[in-house]
Amino acid sequence: MQTASLRLPAILILLWSPGLLLAQGSMEELEALYWARQKEAMSHFTQADVDFMTGMIGHHAQALIMSRLAPANGASTAIRTLAARIINAQNDEIELMQNWLRDREQAVPQVHIDGLNLMMHGGGDHGHHMPGMLTQEQLEELSAAQGMEFDRLFLTYMIQHHAGAVTMVEDLFAVDGAAQDEAAYKLASSIHVDQITEIARMQQMLDDFANQSQ
């Protein structure tokens, strides 16, 4: 396991001296310093960070499976909009997390989706026991639902799914030394606030749905 802390890169310590501004190097030297610092920043992470990224890739992949059902299952406009945004957001985040792992020379899970089946290759954890993950039965139930029933189930299950992601971030943040890496903190924080916000939005939609169904 790597050491885990936000220590300034050695090169920075060498160059920084209190109260004294060093003469700026050439642009080439500054650029070399920039890239050296990017690389150096990739060495401070914990196994908890790696597990989080690996697990979240699988977790996000299931959200893609759920969301891709919307158009064919007669979802309403609002649900199709929501599902399209989830697909866009979580696809991008999967790529970010894969890059994060690759940069740190960790196994990178590849996502393969075949209908309701999720296959992950190349990474340790398949994410099926992550918080909030739907069971295969729940996925099949969602897949069989149409129209308004699909809308209701989609919201119900996506709230459950998102709540699991929020838990995963909070669990990560509770580990000593985790999420000290800037990229990991930013990504996990974004997932946390985005999904809390989306849960509130979906809960509102579900409440409206319940009111209309009375």
């Binding site: 309403s76 406009t77 609002a78 649900i79 199709r80 909009t81 399209a84 308004m148 809308d151 939609m205 409206d208 749905f209 209309q212 169904s213 009375q214």
Partner: peptide
């Protein structure tokens, strides 16, 4: 009233 899901028919923007 029966299940009336007008809330779902949110005005769709031209998303594409």
């Amino acid at each position: 009233m029966n299940a009336v899901c007008f809330r779902w028919a949110l005005l769709g923007a031209l998303l594409t």
